[in-house]
């Protein structure tokens, strides 16, 4: 099941229905119907405050919507399902342990015994080109290494679906490239990917479809090519052209 060459069999569909989050009378998220489950890469774009992070956190069960509901595989999110669903937080938390122990810990949480977890963790680090820092304290790594380690940790479980919240924000071009390579690998293994990004070029490079959010709602969701070449809405047209959406 965790053979790196094998494909992930099926993807747990993650659905949101009539999701709404309101704070102090302001609607921050208002999404009527959304589903991720196909084997593809979706980029979610939009200005700050559009509700991108809020949407994927809600879908991952990290935020509770004021209205509506989230289902995984048709059921409410359950703790045990986190081994099938992964998320890379915008500011991932690395434990105060070695890089290897960080990955092994996540695997143990997912139910692997100690020796298997360490073996898989080692493989995951190798896969991410991080073998050389396996014994280094995670908190002492550089920004780029930290992000790659967090990514490797999220991928080690071989999630069926992986949410990435601005994984390359504040990374230099070289580190960005390494992360994108890892995203590519995950896709090749059959993981469905949802990627929040401000980098339009990155969306073009990686995504099969692009979703534009604005003021808490989804404005447009289209295949990447069409999104950039023939957007259907004024907002998407403006955003793709690099104009500022307010």
């Amino acid at each position: 099941m965790l053979d790196r060459t094998s494909q992930i069999a099926a993807v747990t569909p993650v659905c949101g229905r009539a999701l709404q989050i309101t704070r102090a009378g302001r609607v921050l998220l208002d999404v009527s119907d959304i589903e991720f489950g196909e084997r593809s890469v979706t980029a979610i774009v939009g200005p700050n405050g559009a509700g991108k992070s809020m949407l994927i956190k809600t879908l991952c069960g990290l935020m509770r919507p004021d209205r509506g509901n989230v289902t995984w595989n048709g059921r409410p999110p359950a703790r045990s399902d986190y081994r099938r669903l992964g998320m890379l937080l915008q500011h991932p938390v690395l434990l105060r342990r070695s890089a290897l122990a960080n990955v092994a810990y996540a695997l143990k949480c997912a139910g692997h015994d100690r020796s298997r977890a360490e073996r898989l963790a080692l493989a995951a680090l190798e896969h991410a080109g991080l073998s050389h820092i396996a014994a280094t304290s995670a908190r002492r790594l550089s920004g780029g290494e930290k992000q790659r380690l967090a990514m490797a940790r999220a991928m080690a479980m071989r999630p069926e679906i992986l949410f990435l919240d601005e994984p390359t924000a504040s990374l230099d071009p070289a580190s960005t490239l390494r992360i994108e390579e890892m995203i590519d690998k995950a896709r090749e293994e059959g993981t469905s990917i949802v990627l929040v990004t401000h980098d339009m070029a990155q969306a073009r490079r990686l995504a099969d479809t692009v979703m534009l959010m604005h003021r808490g709602g989804i404005v447009e969701h289209a295949p990447t090519q069409r999104f950039f070449d023939a957007p259907a809405t004024d907002e998407a047209r403006a955003f793709a052209a690099g104009e500022i959406l307010i």
């Binding site: 991952c60 703790r79 045990s80 399902d81 986190y82 081994r83 937080l89 991932p92 949480c109």
Partner: peptide
């Protein structure tokens, strides 16, 4: 700091 990450670990 750890709350959401621990949720993702399924703890």
């Amino acid at each position: 700091e750890y709350d959401q990450q621990m949720t993702l670990f399924g703890l």
